[in-house]
């Protein structure tokens, strides 16, 4: 049995495949996040019970969608490292001839994937519950932009923070305490972009373009920094 130094991409694929295989066997993160998302929709239903005009809901829905995504992702992120810790499997990864940034990239990818799956279920439900009454603007499809950019950013910075908090006391609360202020700029930009895309007003590009530019800028800067600093965080 001989070994050659595996390519970084092979290692990335191996790690990602492990996460996916494990998740589709236990469905731990997906069920938790899915149920939580549905429950949040129920809460929104109660919160919006007295909102009569459909336009009001349309105006708010950008914010509501992002509230849903942020809190649901928090739930998933805290779980994403629990099984790496359970029997010390993360230590085995650190002992392997493996660049630590590959661990970051694969974990961020799997988090992104699971988050996307939950969004694919939760967002149509959101539409079904709240937006069927109000006609969608023709610019509706443009919400895809902030959704993709926002989810990528959440998965990236969230993976770094989840790595930090996994070994701490009271990790669930701590992750929220660190995560929400840090992603505030991204959240703000994504909410603005999503809202204008849903409303489809004439001046849409005035808000949409700077929002998206800043959200993309945030993603690039933050993921780069997380990627650079990940070695320090994961190996102590």
């Amino acid at each position: 049995m001989n070994s050659t130094r595996p390519s970084t991409f092979t290692q990335y694929r191996t790690l990602l495949a492990k996460d996916i295989r494990r998740e589709f066997r236990t469905r731990e993160m997906l069920t938790a996040m899915g149920i939580y998302a549905v429950l949040m929709l129920v809460v929104f239903g109660a919160a919006l019970a007295t909102t009569v005009a459909a336009f009001d809901i349309l105006q708010m829905s950008g914010g509501l969608i992002w509230a849903l995504i942020v809190f649901t992702s928090l739930l998933g992120l805290t779980r994403s490292f629990s099984y790496e810790k359970e029997e010390g499997a993360l230590e085995a990864l650190l002992l392997a001839p493996l660049d630590r940034s590959v661990i970051f990239l694969s974990k961020a990818s799997s988090n992104l994937l699971f988050l996307a799956v939950v969004e694919l279920i939760a967002l149509p439900l959101f539409y079904f519950f709240f937006l069927t009454g109000s006609g969608l603007a023709p610019t509706f499809w443009m919400t895809l932009g902030p959704l993709i950019v926002g989810t990528v950013g959440i998965a990236g910075i969230g993976t770094l923070l989840a790595t930090i908090t996994m070994g701490t006391r009271g990790k669930d609360v701590l992750l929220a305490v660190l995560f929400i202020p840090l992603i505030f700029p991204l959240l703000y930009a994504c909410v603005c972009a999503t809202t204008v895309a849903l409303l489809g007003s004439e001046m849409i590009m005035d808000t949409y373009v700077p929002s998206m530019a800043l959200a993309i800028g945030y993603d690039v800067v933050m993921i780069l920094v997380s990627w650079l600093l990940y070695d320090f965080v994961v190996s102590v």
Binding site: I157, P181, L182, P185, Y188, C192, T207, P210, L214, V225
Partner: peptide, 22 residues
């Protein structure tokens, strides 16, 4: 690590809230 990220986050936060018209 958190101190470094937080410091980078702050200017972005200002830019976003300043430049995105709502």
């Amino acid at each position: 690590v958190f101190g470094i990220i937080a410091f980078i986050d702050v200017p972005i936060c200002f830019l976003v809230t300043r430049l995105v018209p709502t």
